[in-house]
């Protein structure tokens, strides 16, 4: 349960990027050649957990995947296929029972926004900076400079409960970005939003990533969302999670959910999801 960095972490420095000044520069991206092409590499990872009744459950089994630097990998799978476990492994919150994980320091954006109810939107966004040792004033200045870009201007002092669901997700995303980590693990980031806000947020995320490039692992149960946002798509089987399909989404943004190619990819992904759920195990 030790926090922080995997011993095999190729990029070692957990505070990478914490000394950045203005804007967001991914230093890992800025200096290619010194790093591998992959932000995260998981090799034959098996991991389990105990449920409330103390039964041993295998969440992930012999799972291998690689996340190419600067790209968005979407992970879809049925509920309870170990998607959240996968992200926690990548973030170093858990150590795998078997297999190896080598990845860049990663920041988690959890399913619920988990904003601190007692902090203003600005202080919530600046939280990672505070933890990296910045003074309150410095952290606020830095986070505040990005509020307009994130459509949050004028809401600096608002408490989370005064913000709409979409705004809360944006604050949460800004907080994740400001951790300065090059790899972002997004766990169902828009799962709690209504359909329209969700669509807006998807477009907004594409746009934000274009301006602030990051490597992203996006976990979702929504196949369409995975195809609209991901550069690559992997489909996990029900628990224990294994990769049953790996699709490339070589489509330019913005993608429309009525686009023929999107529809086709979606049905391919859905077919493999259905197949692995029906297959006898």
């Amino acid at each position: 349960m030790q926090p922080g960095v995997d011993p095999q972490n190729l990029w070692g420095n957990a505070r990478e990027g914490s000394d950045m000044t203005t804007g967001l520069t991914d230093r890992a991206l800025a200096t290619p050649g010194t790093m591998s092409d992959y932000s995260a590499t998981l090799t034959s990872v098996t991991h389990g957990y105990r449920d409330e009744r103390g039964e041993e459950l295998t969440a992930l089994e012999d799972l291998s995947l690689r996340v190419r630097r600067g790209r968005v990998l979407a992970v879809v799978g049925p509920s309870g296929c170990g998607k959240t476990t996968l992200l926690e492994l990548i973030c170093g919150l858990q150590q795998p029972a078997a297999g190896t994980i080598a990845c860049q320091p990663a920041a988690l954006m959890p399913q619920r926004d988990l904003l601190m109810g007692w902090l203003s939107a600005l202080d919530n966004a600046a939280l990672a900076l505070r933890i990296a040792g910045r003074s309150r004033a410095q952290a606020r200045l830095h986070a505040g400079a990005l509020f307009a870009e994130f459509g949050l201007q004028g809401f600096e002092r608002a408490k989370p409960h005064e913000l709409s669901g979409g705004m809360r997700q944006r604050v949460a995303f800004l907080r994740t970005l400001l951790s300065g980590k090059g790899l972002l693990c997004l766990d169902e980031p828009f799962g709690a939003l209504d359909a329209i806000t969700r669509q807006q947020m998807q477009r907004w995320l594409i746009d934000a990533l274009r301006r602030q490039p990051r490597t992203v692992v996006l976990v979702t149960h929504d196949v369409e969302e995975a195809i609209l946002l991901g550069d690559e798509l992997i489909v996990l089987s029900p628990r224990p999670g294994r990769v049953v399909a790996h699709l490339q989404v070589a489509l330019e943004h913005p993608r429309s959910h009525t686009d023929r190619r999107v529809v086709e990819l979606r049905s391919r992904a859905l077919r493999s999801l259905t197949a692995c759920q029906e297959a006898p195990r």
Binding site: G4, E88, L93, A107, L108, L114, A128, I131, S179, C185
Partner: peptide, 14 residues
């Protein structure tokens, strides 16, 4: 305290 919040802070190396 929300355990998930603690996890989140740990990914920030708290």
């Amino acid at each position: 305290v929300d355990v998930e919040q603690l996890k989140l802070l740990r990914t920030f190396d708290a």
